[in-house]
């Protein structure tokens, strides 16, 4: 049995979703399903200019790798890529990408969903709002709904 190693990147620059899919599937004939999730910076009805993404260097990569490895084992994935940006991200820009590959669709859907649910609650990133009025606003508060989304995978 081959061990699948996840591709994890924490970076300032943008990512190319199609390039990441191609990198995962090129030259293979065992992949039957690829699911991608892309998270973008929402404008909140025109109120926001950008989000400032702070992270804990080193731990951010380690924690996403730990989550990705759990997903690969649990859903027998053939490939998993997770990329999370940091720095100032304008509304409409990408924040996070997850690509999951498997022989059949359900495992790829579940794998991408699982990674996002755990990433939101345990990968060390924090968002601060920057308003269109030019002022630095508040740090975004964690949501109970995110904890519940994570907890549904237990048991």
């Amino acid at each position: 049995m081959t061990t699948i190693t996840p591709t994890i990147r924490v970076q300032c620059e943008d990512f190319d979703q199609q390039a990441e899919i191609d990198r995962m599937t090129k030259g293979r004939h065992d992949v039957g399903a690829v699911v991608t999730f892309t998270g973008l910076c929402r404008g909140e009805s025109g109120r926001l200019e950008a989000l400032e993404l702070e992270h804990y260097p080193g731990m951010a990569e380690a924690e996403i790798t730990r989550i990705a490895t759990l997903a690969i084992e649990r859903f027998s994935l053939l490939g998993l890529t997770a990329i999370h940006r940091y720095g100032t991200i304008a509304t409409g820009e990408n924040i996070v990408l997850v690509v999951a590959a498997s022989p059949h669709r359900q495992a790829a859907f579940d794998g991408a969903n699982f990674v996002m649910d755990f990433l939101k609650t345990s990968a060390p990133f924090w968002k601060k709002e920057h308003g269109r009025d030019g002022k630095a606003g508040d740090w975004i508060s964690a949501k109970d709904a995110d904890d519940r989304a994570r907890d549904k995978w237990q048991g």
Binding site: G39, L53, H55, Y56, M59, A62, E63, H84, I95, V96, M116, L119, K120, T121, S122, A123, P124, F125, W126, K127, W139, I140, S141, A142
Partner: peptide, 24 residues
């Protein structure tokens, strides 16, 4: 690595303190 508040800190090289996470 994440720890609970009852965790002993003996031997820790680096301790990080932060709010609940809001990435993704």
């Amino acid at each position: 690595e994440h720890v609970e508040h009852d965790e002993p800190i003996a031997g820790a090289r680096e301790i990080g303190l932060f709010p609940p996470m809001t990435g993704g």
